[in-house]
């Protein structure tokens, strides 16, 4: 049986792992290579490196971070944050990423998804969607949650899948950093609309939140950062909890 994936997100800035509250106010949580090593030992299924302040001059630093993490783990590794074109994606993959995640650039140039899927296969192309509840719908925001668009999350998820994205990384802006639980309605709405897997993100605070998103939320994977970073809970404990609630996980 296919296991539900537990994914650790490393929000990286200047080579250090940080974590924001609602995308703002960053505090440091350590060295990315050391964290990846710890997660691997604890049984994490996948790692995402998110460059939260990606700029042109920082891309070389990012490549070093990707390489440092890739040396520590033999698990799927995804890189996102500021990937604007094929050259950025090439550099991330060359440095050791198995998948790249596109957010703002995919909305601006959806054909980029198709180009990357042709080049690397759909399994390497993740579309990241940051959504916020507004008048009964889920509106997409870009530029790290700072800029509203006219796009609806469910409708864009469908289009992105048609254009070649292989997975959707769906973040609830309302829940991100709050530890009040994943937005299961948002996640289920997108998961039911597409034929590709959906990774739920934003709001993980307790083990039961993961049970909820894997049942009511119909998610295939769940991503969290701070719940793992500060050793508040071990990945292994979370998996034990999920298994005892009938959620299939890799042990």
């Amino acid at each position: 049986m296919l296991s539900k994936r537990i994914i650790a997100c490393l929000d990286v800035r200047d080579g250090q792992v940080v974590k924001g509250i609602n995308f703002e106010g960053l505090r440091s949580a350590g060295d990315p290579g050391a964290l990846a090593r710890r997660y691997n030992r604890e049984g994490i299924d996948e790692v995402v490196i998110l460059d939260v302040t990606a700029t042109i001059e920082k891309r070389k630093a990012l490549a070093r971070t990707i390489n440092a993490v890739a040396q520590e783990i033999f698990l799927p590794l995804c890189v996102g944050g500021g990937i604007k074109d094929e050259a950025h994606a090439d550099a991330a993959i060359e440095a050791g990423a198995d998948k790249v995640s596109l957010n703002t650039a995919a909305i601006a140039r959806p054909e980029l998804l198709t180009a990357l899927a042709r080049r690397y296969g759909s399994q390497a192309v993740i579309v990241a969607i940051d959504a916020k509840r507004e008048s009964g719908a889920f509106r997409i925001y870009v530029r790290s949650g700072q800029q509203a668009t006219e796009r609806d999350a469910v409708e864009w998820a469908r289009e992105a899948a048609d254009r070649g994205a292989g997975e959707i990384l769906l973040t609830s802006i309302d829940r991100d950093g709050t530890k009040s639980g994943f937005d299961c309605e948002l996640t289920a709405a997108v998961s039911e609309a597409v034929s590709i897997p959906v990774i739920a993100s934003g709001g993980a605070g307790t083990f039961d939140h993961f049970v909820d998103v894997f049942t009511a939320g119909k998610a295939h994977a769940a991503l969290a950062a701070s719940i793992f970073h500060y050793a508040e809970h071990a990945v292994a404990d979370l998996k034990r909890h999920l298994a005892s609630h009938g959620v299939p996980v890799r042990r």
Partner: peptide, 9 residues
């Protein structure tokens, strides 16, 4: 919901 590709562990 049956998802293809088959992705994961």
């Amino acid at each position: 919901i049956f998802k293809v590709p088959h992705v994961g562990w």
